[in-house]
Design a binder for these strands. Structure first.
Length: 608
RNA sequence: GCCCUGGUAGUGUAGCGGCCUAUCAUGAAGCCCUGUCGAGGCUUCGACUCGGGUCCAAAUCCCGACCAGGGCGCCA
């Protein structure tokens, strides 16, 4: 090793030792005579000193000084020297190595560095450069303390998961990344085949069918840190390629899977955060989640629950509500922003109007017609529109929403699913703006009791709620019955309002699986074409099985409080799915296309 | 496909019709400095994304492109 210690390692107990350190020159301070260098690696930084008056006669003082004259920030150097105590009063208590320093008596410049395009070192008032610059020079971005920490954190989470799953008998099995395309699900990334021109592999959206076939193969307890690929537009928590902790078990029921997962996260909690995690996780039905939180991924750490007041306000003469409620499937929901939750108290109905106006603008941006409000006062509910509401209606509202003095009631009206969705966003917005999430512990919740099918809102066609492999709650279903009424044995794992996992018990009877496909409107021909191999696998004694896939990028970014999952991925892609560090995707030589017998339809002039 | 926000020295920003030959910080280059730690001091360098338009006058207003981010749709 070029170094005897890491740059974050030395302490007072090491004083007198002769050490060799290597790292990057992060800062240096030249006082004309004595010079200080902060030598950093991802473990920390140590002050190394050039102090001409302190050297013994056998040290090449001039030579070291000349080498040091040539180094700049982020030069890679190795130094040898003796660890010594700092001059009393000059210790740096912000740095764990701050009581000591190394007096350089030998130095080697291992590499130079160009002038860096942005600040790597944490500095007061320094803000991050634009995302694309960070991504272009990702290797420099990764040198930053925060990113280095994130990568290590992620490693610890994954290592902990691996250790635990191994300890309870799971085995890690890799499945192919060159797979078959299927019409279901997200858009595929396609890979042309050279040996069979005109045919394509797809990159896996998840190892779903492979892991089920592993169960048929008797693996019984499988897991994998599986890279998944979906060619759908990105979000701050969505990348075209992402990592799932994928897991499947045989001879189990839902409770076994829940226990396994809860136990898994308990171990991760202990290993990585050093804390106990409360289990079992609470469960909430999809219906409750939508009604109370307006989303299938509820953040249940705070109240501000949505209250359905459709039946009450029906009896008002408020024109806007009447118009909305005239349409089928409409609803009026209310969020009570309790005065006790608000940081700056505005108990007077006339105060805080600009605040309400801001919320109204926001609601319009969300696609709502607007937002109606009332403030609870000593004289009851008050606002510009209470005159349209009878006394009894107002009193019912007070009771239903539990309104007490100073509370602000916010109403959204429109089609139920839109109102719920907007209400869910409103709830999160109010929580964020009033600091309700600050200092909160993390909270898992299982989302359960989901339907097997759902109707496409546009075409009305029946589609899977999760995917076609979900086992019906009863194990079977009547394909001539009311499809939308059946429940599936599926569940989502939600953490702090983000879906971080989704799984189910699977159909292990081929006949039920066939029925499932038929119910989804799949022809016998296509079933054969796309799933014959899989259906046949189920026919060779498939055991009952189920599992889950959990997004590790999201999980780590939530624990670390990152704005985006890009901050826990070493080389993420930008919003357009470009990798800025290596400029992919790129055009390829015509010869490569010829070999694959492919032709581009893109006009050459339109490409760069 | 759509909506929103932004684009000013290498980096982060201020300016938002004339006070702009564009602010401040950081950086880079050079000099000074023997206990700093985002060292300090002095000097120098370096920018209005592009194309139209309005106007006596545009970094600033308008239109359009391009780039980036957030969101909707999409994500079985």
């Amino acid at each position: 090793m070029i170094k005897t210690n890491d740059c974050g390692a030395l302490r007072s107990k090491d004083i007198g030792q002769r050490v060799r350190l290597a790292g990057w020159v992060r800062f240096y301070r030249d006082h004309g005579g004595v010079r200080f260098y902060d030598l950093a690696d991802s473990f920390g930084s140590t002050q190394v000193v050039y102090d001409p008056e302190a050297y013994q006669s056998n040290v090449n003082v001039v030579g070291i000084g000349q080498l040091l004259n040539n180094i700049g920030r982020e030069y890679v150097i190795a130094v040898k020297g003796v660890v010594r105590e700092r001059v009393p009063g000059t210790e740096d208590d912000r740095n764990p190595t701050g009581t000591v320093e190394v007096l350089i008596d030998e130095i080697e410049i291992l590499n130079s560095s160009k002038v860096i395009p942005f600040e790597i070192a944490e500095q007061k008032n320094s803000t991050l450069p634009s995302e694309d610059l960070r991504l272009k020079y990702r290797y420099l971005d990764l040198r930053r303390t925060e990113m280095a920490y994130n990568l290590r954190f992620r490693h610890k989470v994954l290592a902990s998961a691996r250790r635990y799953l191994d300890s309870i008998g799971f085995i890690e099995v890799e499945t192919p990344t060159l797979t078959r395309s299927s019409q279901e699900g997200a858009r595929d990334f396609l890979v042309p085949s050279r040996t069979m021109p005109g045919t394509f592999y797809a990159l896996p959206q998840s190892p779903q069918l492979y892991k089920q076939m592993l169960m048929v193969g008797g693996v019984e307890k499988y897991f994998q840190l599986a890279r998944c690929y979906r060619d759908e537009d990105s979000r701050s928590d969505r990348q075209p390629e992402f990592t799932q902790l994928d897991l499947e078990m045989s001879f189990v029921d839902v409770e076994d899977i829940f226990r396994t997962i809860e136990s898994l996260y308990s171990h991760i909690w202990k290993d990585v955060l050093g804390k106990e995690l409360r289990t079992p996780f609470p469960r909430i039905t999809l219906e409750d989640a939508l009604n109370k939180y307006g989303t299938d991924a509820p953040d249940i750490r705070f109240g501000l629950e949505l209250v359905d007041v459709t039946d009450i306000v029906k009896c008002s003469s408020y024109d806007i509500f009447q118009k909305v409620l005239g349409k089928k499937g409409s609803a009026v929901i209310c969020v009570n922003l309790k005065s006790t939750l608000v940081k700056e108290k505005t108990l007077d109905a006339n105060v805080g109007r600009s605040e309400v106006d801001r919320l109204i603008d926001w609601a319009k941006q969300q696609g709502m017609g607007g937002l109606t409000w009332m403030r609870m006062t000593d004289e009851g509910l008050s606002s510009n529109i209470v005159k349209y509401f009878g006394k009894e209606v107002l009193e019912s509202l007070e009771r239903r929403t539990d309104a007490t003095k100073g509370d602000l009631l916010l109403f959204l009206a429109g089609p139920r699913h839109l109102v719920q969705k907007a209400g869910g966003h409103l709830r999160m917005k109010l929580a964020r703006e009033n600091g309700l999430l600050e200092g909160m512990d993390h909270q898992f919740v299982w989302l359960v009791d989901c339907p097997l099918f759902q109707a496409d809102p546009v075409t009305g066609k029946v589609a899977s709620f999760h995917h076609p492999f979900v086992r019906p709650v009863e194990g079977d279903f009547d394909e001539n019955g009311e499809l939308l009424s059946f429940k599936g044995c599926s569940y989502d794992l939600v953490l702090n309002g983000s879906e971080i996992g989704s799984g189910s018990m699977r159909n292990h009877h081929a006949e039920v699986q066939r029925k499932m496909f038929r119910a989804l409107g799949m022809s016998e021909e296509r079933m054969r074409e796309e799933f014959d191999f899989f259906l046949e696998a189920l026919e060779f004694g498939a055991p009952p099985h189920g599992g889950i896939g959990m997004g590790m990028d999201r999980f780590c970014s939530i624990l670390l409080g990152c704005e985006s999952i890009r901050d826990v991925i070493a080389f993420p892609k930008n919003k357009k799915f470009q990798s800025l560090v290596d400029s992919s995707p790129k055009k390829v030589d015509q010869a490569k296309l010829d070999e694959l017998q492919l032709m581009s339809l893109v006009d050459e002039d339109e490409q760069d």
